[in-house]
Amino acid sequence: MSPIALDIAIHLAKIALIFFVVLTLAAYLVFAERRILAWIQDRKGPNRVGPFGLLQPLADLIKLLTKEDFRPAGADKWLFYLAPAMAAIPAILTFAVIPFGAPLQLFGREVPLQVADLNVGLLFFLALSSIAVYGVALGGWASNSKYALLGSIRGLAQLISYELSMGLSLVPTVMLAGSLRLSDIVGAQEGIWFIVYQPLAFAIFLISIAAECKRIPFDIPEAEGELVAGFHTEYSGMRFGLFFVGEYINIIVLGGLATTFFLGGWHGPWLPPFAWFSVKTLAFAFFFIWMRGTLPRLRYDQLMHLGWKVLTPLALVNILVTGWILMLR
């Protein structure tokens, strides 16, 4: 095979791998969440479809595909149709910049385990997380339902507020690594992980990503006790499924990013790099599920206070303190 054809083949293989692994993981994360929540609440959870209920995601997919594809009267046709895809696509794309293993030696060349090693990888992630807001905002507005509208406006304000503290908490890691390239950030953590230097930034980032994926205790956009299902109240079938899949992909992607920025990415002793990355990312996913089983929902004013009055100023002060300490060293 000529070098160019080999190059293209390697890239396509990586893209296909990322795409299918992330989608399958998202489907099984839904299943894992139901089993783990059941375990926390001392009940059994789904265990009927296949051995240990392992075929449950497949059954869910078939059910979602065969449900009535419903569009309420007065909904904005095109926005209502396209919003779920707008929510799911950015989540998938973000995974492109995450290095999920050490560079491999394949066919006599070095293959980085990352779809695209962008020199602005961190900005790419922040840009996509801003774009993901559109799916929530437009989907809720287009539904012509009050619950959906309220959910989408709440979601909009929440997502942009926490995006701020999320972005600011990443500045110290860039200062330590001296680069926006994610592979450089991982490379800078070969010895000591950034969580050791930046525990505060890590805490801010962790809280912010929980809010970014709209998880309990931050699930106010879809609070079922007050808003039915929030911005996706009127969605059914696979369009609802796309919102759902997007959310779970987001959990995996943000877990992967937290691993990359603070937990040393694929670095770790004994185990192979890819295994380390998977273990750390899934640990974050488990943490989010655990939180859902444990915590009550915040009130809206508490949510906004936490974002604007606690996390954002803390992140700014943290940047300055980090700057001073790095200079005086």
Partner: peptide
């Protein structure tokens, strides 16, 4: 460096649109 991302964009968009189209074709009305 952005070419693989473009390919991934294409695949993600096709996935999104296919789910929407199949859902409206298969589901009863």
């Amino acid at each position: 460096a952005y070419l693989p991302i473009l390919v991934l964009v294409a695949i993600a968009v096709i996935f999104g649109l296919c789910s929407l189209v199949f859902s409206s074709l298969i589901g009863q009305k």
